[in-house]
Simulated assay, not measured.
Amino acid sequence: MSTPKKREGGGRTYRRVHNALWLRLTDGTYRVGDVLPTQRELEKDLQVSRTVVQSVLKDLGERGFLASVRGSGTTVVALPTAKGSPQSDSQVRPTLYEYIGTAFSEPEVTLDLVALTAETFIGHFRSQTELVEAGRITPQRVTVRMLLPSEDADLEFPRALDPKDDRVRLRWRNRVRLHIAEMGDYCDRLKAQNVEVKLLIRRRRRAPEFKLVLLNDTHALVGLYSPVVGPIRLDDGTVVQRAVDVKGVGVNLHHYERHVVGVEDDDSQYGDYREWFDSRWKLST
């Protein structure tokens, strides 16, 4: 992924919105021919100013992914592709899309995940499954370990501020159940392509403070979950006006790479996250 320019209204907010729309282009949310929501709708959805939305759309248009016609909105005309090694710099954070694509280019794929819902991860996993089915990549073995919150845990988030209102937590529970079922379907599709697949899921009795993905025992991507208070729309269309959720879409990820000292020792920050995940995995059931 090449580096977008830092435009007016840039900085952290610009990067978050750019990452959010980039994710939607790569995880199947937006496909070629789709018309994007209006700028006003994106402004409300992403909770940013119109200037930031316009700046990000302009950059994606200049790079050949979007085309805008007055009176007809903004249309997706091309999708990004992961080529070569992931890149990052001071302007654009690394993306899970890039790193999971690189992981699947290897014959042996190992993915360890800590997340609140795993929705983004599973979207990217689906994209890689479709590439396998198309014959564009040919992994031999895929092992996935997912560490998610327990369904009956008293989670700090997501939840309604009214302790008697359980609707937000139930919404989270139902979505996680759906995502896990989808993950199983994608694994079955890989098996149908003669890929050896192992999917393991364990539960923790607390909400994670950060999203963590370990890829091929080489790379770690880490993004902090930042709780925010505001309205949450339920699946039936009703709105819980005061609830706690976390900013998941477009969250900034930080990359850490494994550095081996001697034979097995690893003194990098990657090693710290690897040790953290393995210890929590052993304690979970």
Rank of each mutant, 00 (worst) to 15 (best):
R141T: 15
E106Y: 10
M146Q: 01
A134M: 02
P158V: 08
L131Y: 03
I137K: 08
T143Q: 13
R136T: 12
L148C: 06
D152S: 14
L116H: 06
E119G: 09
E108F: 12
F121T: 03
T143Y: 01
R126H: 11
E119L: 10
L131A: 14
V132I: 15
P149E: 00
E106I: 05
D165Y: 01
G123F: 11
F104L: 08
E151D: 12
V109I: 10
I137S: 13
F104W: 14
R136Q: 14
A103G: 07
R136Y: 06
D112Y: 07
S150R: 03
D112A: 11
G135F: 09
L116P: 04
R167M: 00
T110D: 12
E119H: 11
V144A: 08
V132F: 04
L161Y: 07
A153C: 08
L111Y: 05
E151Y: 14
G123R: 03
V168H: 07
E108D: 09
T102L: 13
I122R: 13
S150I: 01
A160P: 00
G123E: 02
E156D: 12
P158C: 05
V132H: 02
T129Q: 05
R126P: 05
G135V: 04
L116Q: 08
P107F: 11
A160N: 02
R169D: 03
E156Q: 11
V114Q: 09
A134W: 07
E151W: 10
F104I: 01
E133R: 15
D152A: 11
T138S: 12
G123C: 07
R141I: 03
E119Q: 14
L113G: 11
V142I: 12
P149H: 05
P139N: 07
P107T: 11
A115L: 00
L111N: 07
E130K: 11
V144I: 15
E151K: 10
L170G: 00
A153T: 14
I122M: 11
P107Y: 09
E106A: 15
T120Q: 13
T102V: 12
H124A: 02
E133L: 07
R126M: 10
T110W: 08
L147V: 10
E108H: 10
F104A: 03
F125A: 08
G101R: 03
L131G: 03
P163A: 10
D154E: 14
S127P: 01
K164Y: 10
T143F: 00
G135M: 06
D154A: 13
A103L: 05
L111W: 04
Q140L: 01
R141H: 02
Q128F: 02
L111A: 02
A115M: 05
F125K: 06
A134E: 13
R169M: 05
E108C: 03
L170K: 12
A118Q: 01
Q140T: 05
T110E: 14
P139V: 05
